[in-house]
Each structure stands twice: as C-alpha cells, then as structure tokens.
Nucleic acid binder design. Structure first.
Length: 277
DNA sequence: AATTGTACCTGTCAGC
DNA sequence: TGCTGACAGGTACAAT
C-alpha cells in the first residue's frame, strides 16, 4: 500500500492527535506488532513519554519522544492508523492501540501483519529494520538533479529495480515507480548505466511531480489505504499506468501492458516507453 | 559484495 | 457453488 505520499498523508493526519500528547497506555492486540522487539521493551520506553516531533523519511514515520527515544513505524503493505472508528470495517484487524493524555485513542490496523512499530534511541541498532541504511528521501531538497544522476549511474541495474531500492533513494514503491517511468518515457527494464543524462533529468522531474501531485490528493486508494481520519486518497483516478492493464495509453492510445519485473507486477506503455539497454 | 529467492500474513479474484 | 493457485501497494534475511 503505502508509499511516500500515503505515509506523508498518514503522518500529517496523525499530527494533531499525537503532537505534544503523552502516551498513557499501549495495548497490544497482536503481540507481533513490535517484533522482533518485545512488547515489554516497547512499553518501557514509551509509557509516560510525550511525543514532541513527527517526521518521515521514505516510507518510515518517526515520532520523537521526550526521553530522546523515538517510535519508528513502517506500515508495509496494509498497515493503517485510524483515530475515529466510525469505519467499523477494519475492527477485526486491530493490532495496537495508543491511549493518549488527550483522552483520545489511536488505533493501528494491519490485515497482513507485516507492519511494525518499534522504539529506539539508536537507529543503527534497531533490530528487524534496515532503517539506518535508508537513502535520501525523494522529496528532500538535498536530492539535487546532479546527485540523483550520480546515484543512478553508480549501479548497473534495471531501472525499476534501482528505483525500488530504498537504500539508494527512499519513498518510491511499485505504483509510483511505474508512474514516474511512464512520465519519463523510460522502459522499466532499461539498464541504469545506459540511460542518457537527458532522460534521467526528465525522470528526476517526473518522479517529484507524481509524488507531489499524489500528495495533493492524499495518495492513492485502490483497496485498504486510508488517512488517519478514515478518508480515501483521491489519486487513483489520475494514475496513467498502474492498474490500467489493457486500457488506452493517455499519450498514444495503444494498450497498457502488465509484465513482471523483479517479481513485481509492472505496468507500462510498450510504445511510449523506450528501452535502453 | 551483490544478487536471488523465500518468508512473513490474510484476503480476493480468475479460472476451472 | 466450490476449490486451487496466483497475486496484492514492502522489506528482511538466508542462500548463492
């Protein structure tokens, strides 16, 4: 589910409920939610602590606590937060509940149980996550065009595989990689070192554009994803390739294909997107 | 060191 | 209708 625009939307929608609130209690409805960390360790560093800052890098959320620890959250495929349970649909998959000093509760749901919440005061020692290896966030202003091109050229790999590698740049997932490559007219199987700089410059702009546009619509919902207020993201109808197999390309009217790249379903226009290998 | 395969889970949907 | 297998937005870790 959640890639950069969705995680950013969740983080923003949680902010008014979490910022400057103290964690009074944590309930584990599925103990594995902190794995491989124990529930006990999670409690030890979170109970009684105030949440003083919320941030995000790539698909990770970070909630800084007043004791210099931070809660690290990854939603993986189906994780979601809800602060208002009018949406009763997901009640059977609740995995964790935070009780706050405001009197409100924040509920964490996760159908597939891949998502995690951890607590740490040293990201490099966090077990169960390679968060300390995380690359620069796609929307970080420090990711300049020049740096992006350097990073792409540093490894000889298929373009889609490279863009999905969170240790290189962080935030793109299966949907937005396909969308960005479509906008830049680059075939996902193109080899990174063979793509001319001119095309990489266009890709750099395309990548940022699709993420920012999606963010305006609070991300893409095609199934589970919701904001913390239970709203759907509105970007689905604006996708060019993802989920549009056998529908017409918006540029050339030929039919969108679906292929496999690195075991992932991959959508593209075989006519518009040029393979460079 | 870098790349690939598999595991983690539950639910849905296409095809028979 | 019911069964089976493939697939789903992600990543960690073992195997090669």
């Amino acid at each position: 589910m959640p890639e950069l625009p969705e995680v950013e939307t969740v983080s923003r929608s949680l902010k008014p409920f979490l910022l400057n609130k103290t964690i009074r209690d944590v309930n584990f409805l599925w103990p594995g939610v902190t794995s491989p960390q124990s529930n006990k360790e999670f409690l030890k560093h979170t109970i009684g602590q105030k949440i003083i800052k919320l941030s995000r890098v790539g698909k990770y959320m970070f909630w800084e606590l007043s004791n210099s620890y931070q809660i690290v959250v990854h939603l993986r495929m189906t994780g979601q937060f809800l602060v208002d349970l009018k949406m009763t649909k997901h009640l059977s998959h609740e995995r964790l509940r935070l009780k706050l000093s405001s009197g409100k509760e924040v509920h964490y749901f996760d159908q597939r149980k891949f998502g995690r919440l951890w607590v740490t005061n040293d990201l490099t020692k966090l077990k169960g996550s390679q968060v300390s290896e995380l690359g620069i966030d796609v929307l970080d202003p420090k990711l300049t065009e020049k740096l992006f091109i350097e990073k792409i050229k540093s490894k000889r790999r298929q373009m889609k595989v490279l863009l999905l590698d969170q240790t290189l740049i962080a935030g793109l997932g299966n949907i937005y990689v396909d969308e960005a490559l479509y906008l830049a007219k680059i075939h996902p199987l193109s080899i990174s070192t063979k793509v001319p700089e001119q095309n990489l410059k266009i890709l750099f702009k395309s990548m940022k554009k699709v993420l920012k546009d999606s963010l305006k619509y609070q991300g893409t919902t095609f199934r589970d994803y919701r904001t913390a207020r239970g709203e759907e993201g509105g970007f689905f109808a604006r996708l060019n390739v993802y989920g549009r197999k056998n529908q017409k390309c918006h540029r050339c009217q030929s039919l969108i294909s679906k292929i496999k790249v690195a075991q992932r379903g991959t959508h593209l226009c075989q006519v518009c997107q040029k393979r460079m290998s």
